[in-house]
């Protein structure tokens, strides 16, 4: 690389280029996604679409931790599932309105995130992953045994209720737009977190933690913060899903759910903005259309996973991003 000093004329504008908040390209993609989200229920089955949305938010929450915090959790089903149980219980037993039930579920995930996160972030790499998995297994066994979770049956026939006590969410079509608002809002919020002063420090920690420490950043606190935020958004997704399917079950807290969100994020492209959305769409669509294949779905998923890991490590969006030479 040439080290000669270039003329100063083309230097000034470069040096002035700074943080932009949201690039025009990203804004355009978000707008396109919103439009697609608004017209999709006129063509596709709303419950399927809501499932895609919930998992897209779940994967984005997971990607916040893995792709931007550099922390691999193998137990994200704990937050997704616990929130789903709490929201279902709140709506069914306490009779809370849907927005409060979702808030209760999200709050539970946040608290769980603080508890598990503060223990897990003391460990690095694979040990961190093992600690998160171990705690997620504890949440699973708790869900199996606890008196209010309904054991193998889960909590069924959860009422969707009236939003703010006014809007009846029983029709799928109505609920769809509420779910769209929640997930889209959640994903935008995650985008903001990545592009905040906090997000900038996260990037630094992921890039070179000792250097960040030597600059005076107490990195463990940032790691805990991103862990809790990620758990919270995973909870928001799980709580919303409980209302959509009117069900909270062991599937939501099972370790395979933790694996699925890893799969979605890696297939879509970890550390990208839109990758988890694409990954969730691909996996949920596959599960939906291949449902009749039974156990074969798992095998197909596994195969896709292996191919993805071997051929495109960057995931679908990661590869496209390399192509167009723009971060996506």
């Amino acid at each position: 690389m040439a080290v000669d000093v270039q003329t100063t004329s083309n230097v000034a504008p470069v040096a002035q280029r700074g943080a932009k908040g949201m690039s025009t390209l990203h804004m355009a993609i978000f707008a396109a996604l919103l439009v697609a989200g608004l017209i999709a229920p006129f063509f596709l089955y709303p419950v399927f679409l809501m499932k895609v949305l919930c998992f897209a938010l779940f994967a984005c929450a997971f990607n916040l931790l893995l792709g931007f915090g550099g922390l691999l959790s193998f137990g994200h089903a704990a937050y997704f599932g616990a929130a789903s149980y709490v929201a279902a219980h709140a709506a069914k037993v306490w009779g809370l309105t849907p927005e409060l039930a979702i808030l209760a579920g999200t709050g539970a995930a946040l608290i769980l995130g603080v508890l598990i996160g503060s223990l897990a972030i003391r460990r690095q790499g694979i040990y961190f992953a093992m600690v998160t998995l171990a705690f997620a297994q504890m949440v699973f066994f708790f869900s199996l045994q606890a008196p209010f979770t309904g054991g193998e049956d889960g909590i069924q026939a959860v009422p969707r209720g009236h939003l703010f006590g006014l809007l009846n969410l029983r029709p799928d079509f109505t609920l769809y737009f509420v779910v769209l608002a929640i997930t889209f809002g959640g994903i935008l919020f995650i985008y903001r977190i990545i592009h905040s002063p906090f997000g900038q420090v996260l990037k630094a920690i992921r890039e070179n933690e000792p250097r960040a420490i030597s600059l005076g950043y107490r990195t463990n606190r940032y790691k805990l913060a991103v862990f809790v935020l990620s758990a919270g958004f995973a909870g928001l997704a799980g709580a919303t899903k409980a209302l959509v399917f009117q069900l909270a079950s062991l599937t939501d807290v099972h370790w395979t759910m933790s694996g699925e969100v890893v799969l979605m994020t890696l297939i879509g492209g970890m550390g990208t903005v839109f990758g988890p959305i694409v990954g969730a769409t691909v996996i949920v669509t596959m599960q939906n259309y291949l449902a009749t294949w039974g156990a074969w779905v798992t095998i197909v998923q596994g195969t896709i996973f292996v191919i993805a890991v071997l051929l495109f490590r960057e995931g679908i969006v990661g590869v496209i991003s390399k192509w167009v030479k723009r971060p996506l």
Binding site: G18, A19, K20, G21, F189, R192, I193, H195, S196, P197, F198, G199, Q200, V201, A204, A212, L215, G216, Y217, R218, R221, Y222, A225, L229
Partner: peptide, 20 residues
């Protein structure tokens, strides 16, 4: 990243990075 330390801790995840 180093200059940002002047802000104290940067836990404000809700604010745009434009403040930097």
């Amino acid at each position: 990243i180093a200059l940002q330390r002047q802000r104290g801790d940067s836990f404000d995840f809700w604010r745009s990075e434009r403040v930097l």
